[in-house]
Simulated assay, not measured.
Amino acid sequence: MDTNRLSPELEKALSDQMNKEIHASHTFLSYGIWADDKGYGGIANFLYRHAQEERNHSIKFMEYVLNRGGKPKVDAIPAPPNDPNSLTECFDSVFRHEVDNTTSIYRIVDLSLEQKDWATWNFMQWFVKEQIEEETLAQNLIDKLKIAGGDRASGESLFSLDKTLESAPDDVKMAQDATGDNP
C-alpha cells in the first residue's frame, strides 16, 4: 500500500529545499573558516553556529518528508562560493542567501496552498517565521558592521564587533527539539 501523502511535485520541492539548506550550511561553514583564518574568531564562531542551524533545518525537511510517507532525495551539494574579499562582502552574501531562501520557502508555501496540502502548509509556517528571524539577523550583521565603519573600520571597532558576535547567545537547538514557539 502506498502511504505517501505528498504529491510528487511537493515531495521534490521539499527535497530540493532540504538540499538547499545543506548547501547553506556548507556556505556558512566555508565563511566561518574564512573568518577564522582572518583572525575573527567571534565572527567565525557565529558563522559555525549558523551553519549548524542550517543543517538542522535540512533535517527538519528530511524528517517531514519521511513522516508523510515520502522519500527525500539527497542531491550533490554544489561547492560553497569563493571566499569573500571583506566582511562587508561576507555579511552581504549571508543576507542575499537568506532572502533567496525565503523566496524558496514561499514557493513551497504557495504550492502547498495550491494543492490544498494543509499539513505541508502548516509545517512551512515554522520556516516562514524562521526566515523573518534569519533575514533580520543578517540585516543586523550588516548594520553592526556599518556602525563599526564598514570595510574602513578601525581595528578596535572590528575587535569589538568580533567580541560581540563571540558572546552572542548560542541558541542553536537540535532540529527534533524545535517547535513553532521555540524554533
Rank of each mutant, 00 (worst) to 15 (best):
D2I: 14
T3G: 13
R5K: 11
L6Q: 00
S7F: 06
S7N: 03
E9P: 02
E9T: 07
K12N: 14
K12A: 07
K12G: 10
A13W: 01
S15G: 10
S15W: 04
Q17V: 08
Q17Y: 07
M18W: 05
K20M: 13
H23W: 13
S25I: 08
H26P: 09
T27M: 12
T27R: 11
L29S: 02
L29C: 07
L29R: 01
S30R: 02
S30V: 04
W34N: 09
A35Y: 00
D36Q: 15
D36V: 11
D36L: 04
K38I: 12
K38D: 13
G39R: 07
Y40R: 04
G41N: 13
I43E: 05
Y48N: 01
A51G: 08
Q52V: 15
E54N: 10
E54H: 08
R55Y: 08
N56K: 12
H57P: 12
H57E: 14
S58E: 08
S58Y: 12
S58C: 13
I59A: 08
I59V: 13
F61W: 00
M62C: 01
V65H: 04
V65P: 12
N67A: 06
G70I: 01
P72D: 08
P72N: 08
D75W: 12
A76F: 09
I77A: 09
P81R: 05
D83K: 07
D83L: 09
P84V: 04
P84N: 03
P84D: 06
N85T: 10
L87S: 05
T88K: 08
C90G: 01
C90K: 02
D92W: 04
S93W: 09
V94M: 06
R96Q: 03
E98L: 01
E98V: 00
V99G: 03
N101G: 10
N101T: 01
T103P: 00
T103I: 02
I105V: 15
Y106K: 15
R107I: 11
I108C: 13
L111P: 10
S112D: 05
L113K: 15
L113Q: 12
L113R: 15
L113P: 08
E114G: 06
E114L: 12
K116H: 15
D117S: 09
D117H: 04
W118I: 11
A119V: 00
A119Y: 11
T120W: 09
W121A: 15
F123P: 01
F123L: 04
W126I: 14
F127R: 05
F127K: 01
F127Q: 02
Q131Y: 06
Q131E: 11
Q131D: 02
E133D: 14
E134Y: 02
A138S: 00
A138H: 03
N140S: 03
N140A: 11
L141W: 02
L141Q: 00
K146D: 10
G149I: 03
G149S: 02
G150P: 01
R152V: 11
G155V: 13
G155T: 14
E156F: 14
E156V: 14
E156T: 11
S157D: 07
L158C: 10
S160W: 12
L161I: 13
L161A: 12
K163C: 12
E166F: 10
E166K: 08
D170I: 10
D170M: 05
M174E: 09
A175H: 12
A178H: 13
T179I: 02
G180L: 15
P183Q: 08
